[in-house]
């Protein structure tokens, strides 16, 4: 088992950096996770931020976390081509110990906007996902992983997610970021026990764990249901720290535990102090676990025979359905409007299985899509 490193999600944001700085001054931060594609269009990155990235890169303690690739878009997009080219360029400037992306497809026609939502688990989506992961791995030339999604439409999807991730990652020998707050959302939203859900994930594929905070939202579609959302704008709940303590020992190849929080949740001095306390609590848990772990791991998470498919996998029907779903979620004025539009759409009685979607999660999907619509 490798030594586990305590890390922060650290990006070019005044409030995030302000919260991280005392931890860095105390030499507490052992690695940083950088959302590299958030800066793809920034013409001039400050030299001090590049120096910070280089310092961690030189020690093989820099990990990349992409946001905008839209892994399961049914159509291959020019923006994805550009994204890969920029990743290749960034990977020559910095040495990533690994690179990760999010599961799902981005809502909205404009590639760089929207939020990732789930897709049907079919042979078509499996083929597309595997194709994209091979291209990402070829661009960055390091281990590649995916993060489990917080959002699911149904309990059925929740139960299938781990196995689908496993199948998806196999050709690139990839790994999973197990986001424990995402898991916490599903434990609550679908009332499934932790032991049941965690047993459905291939935990020998977990190389990184995320912890973060979120928020509660009342459901109008299914009162008095409260939906847990992964908004990254609050402190880490005690329950997520408990999940961390219970999960680490189950993951033999875990290397990074990362604390994430959005800059908009770190504006006040109190929130910065809370972030630092959360980090120290996380670090203490990691240190305790490290004390009883051996230091050897033979899992490289690199593909034995890396290949790029000659033809780009696409699915025109899937792409049309993704656009249709995005439009419904982004424009429906009410939950009832959304349900009616879904029932009369091409998604009805299809692999999307909209008939099984939980009402309060359709409502949540609308809120997410409309929040991030541009």
């Amino acid at each position: 088992m490798p030594k586990i490193l305590s890390a922060v999600a650290c990006n070019l944001d005044v409030d995030i950096l302000g919260a991280c700085l005392p931890l860095m001054e105390a030499s507490k931060v052992e690695a940083i996770e950088w959302s590299f594609d958030a800066l793809f269009k920034v013409k001039e990155i400050p030299s001090w931020f590049l120096e910070l990235l280089t310092a961690f890169s030189d020690e093989q303690r820099l990990i990349g976390h992409g946001v905008f690739f839209s892994l399961f878009s049914g159509k291959w997009l020019q923006e994805q081509e550009d994204w890969l080219r920029q990743l290749e360029h960034t990977s020559t400037a910095f040495r990533f110990d690994h690179v990760t992306e999010h599961f799902g497809f981005m809502t909205g026609k404009d590639f760089h906007h929207g939020a990732p939502l789930n897709i049907p688990y079919t042979n078509a989506t499996l083929t597309i996902g595997r194709d994209r992961l091979r291209r990402i791995q070829a661009a960055c030339q390091c281990p590649v992983g995916l993060e489990n999604l917080a959002f699911s439409y149904s309990l059925e999807e929740v139960k299938q997610h781990g196995a689908f991730l496993d199948e998806l990652l196999a050709p690139v020998n990839g790994f999973i970021i197990l986001d424990l707050h995402n898991l916490y959302c599903q434990l609550h939203n679908f009332e499934i026990p932790f032991d049941t859900l965690i047993s459905l994930y291939p935990l020998d594929k977990v190389r990184e764990i995320h912890i973060s905070g979120g928020s509660w939202e009342d459901s109008l579609a299914a009162p008095p249901k409260k939906v847990r959302r992964d908004t990254h704008d609050d402190a880490v709940p005690d329950a997520v720290f408990e999940l961390l303590e219970n999960t680490i020992d189950l993951c033999p190849h875990l290397k990074y535990v990362v604390l994430e929080q959005l800059g908009n949740g770190l504006i006040t001095a109190e929130s910065k102090t809370q972030f630092q306390q959360d980090f120290l609590r996380m670090e203490a848990i990691v240190a305790e676990k490290n004390a009883t772990r051996s230091t050897e791991s033979i899992q490289s998470f690199l593909p034995a025979h890396p290949t790029i498919p000659a033809h780009i996998a696409e699915d025109a029907t899937l792409y049309r359905q993704q656009l249709e779903l995005s439009a419904i979620l982004e424009t429906a004025a009410t939950y009832n409007d959304a349900v009616h539009a879904l029932q009369t759409s091409s998604l009805a009685h299809s692999d999307w299985r909209i008939e099984t979607w939980a009402p309060y999660m359709i409502e949540t999907a609308m809120k997410i899509a409309q929040k991030w619509k541009k």
Binding site: V14, E25, A31, F49
Partner: peptide, 16 residues
């Protein structure tokens, strides 16, 4: 991980 004092100072300056 230990960062150099000059880098930490540059970050402090950089984030105002």
């Amino acid at each position: 991980m230990k960062l150099s004092k000059s880098l930490l100072s540059a970050i402090v300056l950089g984030i105002g």
